[in-house]
Nucleic acid binder design. Structure first.
Lengths: 367, 367
DNA sequence: GCGCTGTCTGTAAGCGCATACATCACTCTG
DNA sequence: CAGAGTGATGTATGCGCTTACAGACAGCGC
């Protein structure tokens, strides 16, 4: 039914148990301060009535919600229905891990988590909706106009995830968490060059603006330059979306191009690399024998494909957790003042697709 | 920063823009009803001030929050820290998919999603916290005492996910969504028997109570009986947790046992089956040559392991979506009265681990 | 000129709770 | 036995917003 009059309130409970609403409130907020018999009586009436304290009223009165928020972009496929059981599932990557990390950390601190993906053209902007309901929140880069964030961050803690500060002088109030994209990609690339003799690596980036991808590319370039390996100032290829399908297409194209085929496909993320692996297998191109392939992110999938994918693992779970820690610090007053900018380390994971990893593979199998 | 006095309110905006608070409110709730010039003036002041409407106050006044909730069990590993980069990642399965499904559907309907996993021994019960902040919510089976749910569901829409109604006479107010565990497992088992000549299948279940797992087992039994295949009244083995590690251990044990080895390991979920696959490979037991292995759930991983895993796919995303639909129906008054009980169909996915799937494998590779 | 209608805005009454403060009944102390 | 101290409860106010209702004012037909 879920509708017999409207929900009971403190008043109903108070009346039925012969106390004042203050006492009812105390039973929930501070049970010790109420005589046990009274407490029990109130609780029992509450149970009978099906009373549940209104979070809204609580929040209003106490000026805090006990909820943290997360805004992220809508990653869902345009043709989501069709993709239902395709590689949509494998797309369980970025936001999901962060959600999970945040949820865990939030729970530890007694917070719940409110999540919302951006909906293009909502009348009420996404943030406003979330911001009004939480004590503080995190935003995945490029989900929300920086200006809007800037306004909001004057009033409540906000942390920006992934992607460097977009505009150093306006986004002044935001705490900030990023990962070592540059370092990770550089180290991975150096490994390919030094340990596997790669000489003609091709970097495959994305057409859309992404500070992360750009940082990775710069890392790639740095390693090339250091080793005296030629590499253009631009990625060899930019794909529209960083999906498996696009990765496969990129591999096809790179193989079909005239001239010498690159001896390494360095992808800006794992998704594309996995797609490429499939495409190459289909074409009969051996990995890592004929060409080396690497990804970036360290999604679960990367360990499971054959050959297993050499990649750079981002600590996404930890990113979510770190976001919560930052928010909680702000909220508890442990930290005030200057926004911090945190850079999480990444780790290069050497597996079969670059030619490493017999040992690795054995260890993985041994699990 | 994030603290210069406290956040601005309607009053501040109203005063600064020379209108009443009612007008400010209208600017947000019903912009058309305010003269354009007035509206602009108000909005501009709001921007200057960094005004964001308080969700709490809104909710209180309007008696609705625009938020749906989800409570789920805490699946995290006991030794989470250690497991950080082990198969914890692959555990991205049940709750995550449902979260994603709900989030999408909720967004379509203009709701945000509040998620919270059960924390053992929190003072305020999980549900109470969530229930007080949302218009309606979904609960994964066995997350929350049924009695508590029953009370709450008298007051607001609640839908229970997965797992049959626990107690038909008390949980009367809940809408209910389950999947065809019985049918799915029966069909899968029949396939093994009829198409692959399996004669000594072993079912591996879980020690913990789970209506889903039981239903699957009954489906397994039904298929065996129908085909005149012997099968005890109990699973051959019950593991403590349905993890990869436990699945591997189960496989070991089944292989080590005296007597004839079963010709099929029928696992109650994919996780365990994947673990078993690894263990069997290590032992040099061929799948499906020496023994057939199947799972249940259809997690992404199942398609990626080698041999790819024959399983039963649960529409978990859809489950989340369906939950939202049910809630929204209740909330909008489209549906009232009797709780419904919805059973989502599952699909048997035949892949390599049962001996099918050369074609399948090819198709998968062709993607 | 009058009343009428319609548009825009203001007034005021809550929404359900938390909490400072007041009150009351006692118990202790000296 | 007065007065201070203590614990349990009640009173009253406000949190920031929505929304019925009322008021003001302009344009209309008569």
């Amino acid at each position: 039914m879920s509708a017999s009059g409207s929900a009971p309130t403190v008043y109903d409970v108070a009346e039925r148990s012969g106390v004042s609403i203050a006492t009812v409130s105390r039973v929930y907020r501070n049970p010790e301060s109420v005589r046990p018999e009274t407490r029990e009586r109130v609780l029992s009436v509450a149970r009978d009535l099906g009373y549940v304290p209104s979070g809204n009223a609580r929040g209003l009165a106490s000026r805090s919600t006990g909820v943290l928020g997360l805004c992220f972009p809508d990653y869902s496929d345009p043709d989501a229905e069709a993709a239902e059981d395709m590689d949509d599932d494998a797309a369980m990557l970025y936001s999901d891990q962060i959600i999970r990390g945040m949820e865990r950390a939030a729970r530890r601190h007694g917070y719940a988590l409110l999540i919302a993906a951006s909906l293009k053209g909502g009348p009420e902007s996404l943030v406003a909706k979330v911001a009004g309901r939480v004590d503080g929140f995190a935003v995945l880069a490029r989900t929300v106009p920086t200006a809007e964030l800037d306004v909001i961050s004057r009033r409540q803690p906000v942390v920006m995830l992934a992607g460097p500060r977009e505009n150093p002088d306006t986004a002044d109030h935001l705490d900030h968490i990023e990962v070592a994209n540059f370092d990770g990609q550089r180290e991975l690339t150096r490994h390919l060059i030094e340990d596997h003799g790669v000489r003609r690596p091709a970097y495959i980036g994305s057409a859309e603006e992404s500070p992360d991808v750009e940082a990775r590319f710069r890392g790639f370039l740095a390693a090339c330059r250091d080793a005296g390996v030629r590499a253009g100032g631009e990625p060899v290829l930019r794909v529209a979306m960083m999906t498996q399908a696009q990765g496969a297409r990129a591999a096809e194209e790179l193989c079909a191009r005239a001239g010498e085929r690159p001896d390494a496909f360095v992808f800006a993320n794992d998704q594309m690399a996995v797609g490429a692996l499939h495409a190459l297998e289909r074409r009969g191109v051996k990995v890592p024998g004929d060409v080396v392939v690497t990804g970036f992110d360290g999604i679960p999938l990367s360990r499971l494909v054959r050959p297993s994918l050499t990649t750079v693992r981002q600590p996404m779970l930890r990113m979510g957790e770190a976001a919560v820690e930052l928010l909680v610090e702000r909220l508890s007053g442990t930290r005030t003042g200057e926004p911090v900018s945190m850079m999480l380390p990444v780790t290069v994971v050497r597996r079969a697709s670059c030619g490493c990893g017999e040992a690795e593979a054995a260890r993985a199998a041994a699990r």
